[in-house]
Simulated scan of single mutants.
Amino acid sequence: MRVLAAMSGGVDSAVAAARAVDAGHEVVGVHLALSAKPGTLRTGSRGCCTIEDSHDARRAADLLEIPFYVWDFAERFTEEVVETFVGEYAAGRTPNPCVTCNEKIKFEALLDKAMALGFDAVCTGHYARLSVEDGVPQLRRSADEGKDQSYVLASLTPEQLRHSMFPLGDSRKSDVRAEAERRGLAVANKPDSHDICFIPDGDTKKFLESRLGSTPGELVDAETGAVLGRHSGVHGFTVGQRKGLGIEAPAADGRPRYVLSLEPVSGTVKVGSAKDLGVREIQADRPVWPDLPLAEPTECVAQVRAHGGTAPAVAEVVNGQVSIRLEESLHGVAPGQVVVLYRTDDEGDLVLGSAKIASTTAA
């Protein structure tokens, strides 16, 4: 097959490309330039898509003796990922930009261009597995549960999965680094990137304020209605947040307060105790099904964050929306997050589908 290897400049994508070469595919490497003004150096383990990263990707491609190109997707990334991120926060929702990037950039824009150029598949360094049942691709958790990235890939359509390759799905991260060392790849010990790639200093609140400015509102006790303070915008908060609330006086019981809900129209941020964060029902829209939609109530595991936030559940489709009843309460579940549904079979954890959280019901 003709395979386009997306090479970020990290160890995972380099080893994934190497394995595609070993498998006998005709491989071409490509680095995506996602910023019009990329930094020249990474800040510790934060950030990605820097000039240094593109150089690392090129060096890996040279070692593998494969052609290498840099494709400019900066404008598309800004429109699809950055502006969506800002808009969701302004609306009082909590987005996951990695999900958006995989959906709109790596497996829409990139895959579409790859197909137009005659490639058969796009290869990435994601930790996830693919299997095929009755000709339908099935997305599964990786063998390394601590690095599993099936959550951020769960919005991919069956057609996109059909043209995807995840060579690291059966590997553990430690083994991948050891393999990179054996292959002589200079990125073998390069630190992983963390946080949001387009906010390399990790200060999301400052980034959002630079885009949205100040939209003052009140911090309100959800139980008593008492005004506890003021803030510069709901975009500075997310459901489940405890630190940085700017409330001087402690709660009556002396325990911390948490953000329970955001009301962007009125600018109200409601806060309360940890016990009020529990959620037992989730309503989600815009579902994506790797196969067919759920035809009846289905036992599964619901996951609401990329790492953690899982609970046994029963999910069903009601009027096009996904209704999820959790058997155990989850905390810090926010509208705008993605919920992914899994079911375990003989081959491991299978992704049944994903959807955007629209609303929740307290425990």
Rank of each mutant, 00 (worst) to 15 (best):
L262N: 02
H126Q: 15
E79K: 10
L111F: 10
G44R: 12
A6R: 06
R2E: 09
V279I: 10
V259N: 02
G336E: 00
V152C: 10
H307G: 08
S193R: 01
L161W: 04
Q149A: 04
P297W: 09
V27G: 01
G29H: 05
G272L: 00
R230N: 13
L63F: 08
N96H: 05
L228T: 05
L294G: 14
E248G: 09
V279D: 02
E327Y: 10
A20K: 03
D120G: 15
E108C: 10
A57D: 01
Y127M: 05
M165K: 14
R76L: 15
T124A: 11
T40H: 06
A274S: 14
V234K: 04
L41V: 13
T43C: 10
S45I: 03
C197N: 11
Q321K: 15
G336I: 01
A74L: 09
S8Q: 04
D175L: 10
G254L: 09
E65T: 14
D276P: 00
R257G: 01
S193N: 06
T43D: 12
E327N: 13
I324N: 01
A363R: 03
I66M: 08
P97L: 03
A180I: 07
V11C: 15
R286W: 00
Y89C: 01
S261N: 11
R211K: 13
V99T: 07
F119S: 06
R162D: 14
Y342G: 06
K37H: 14
D134E: 15
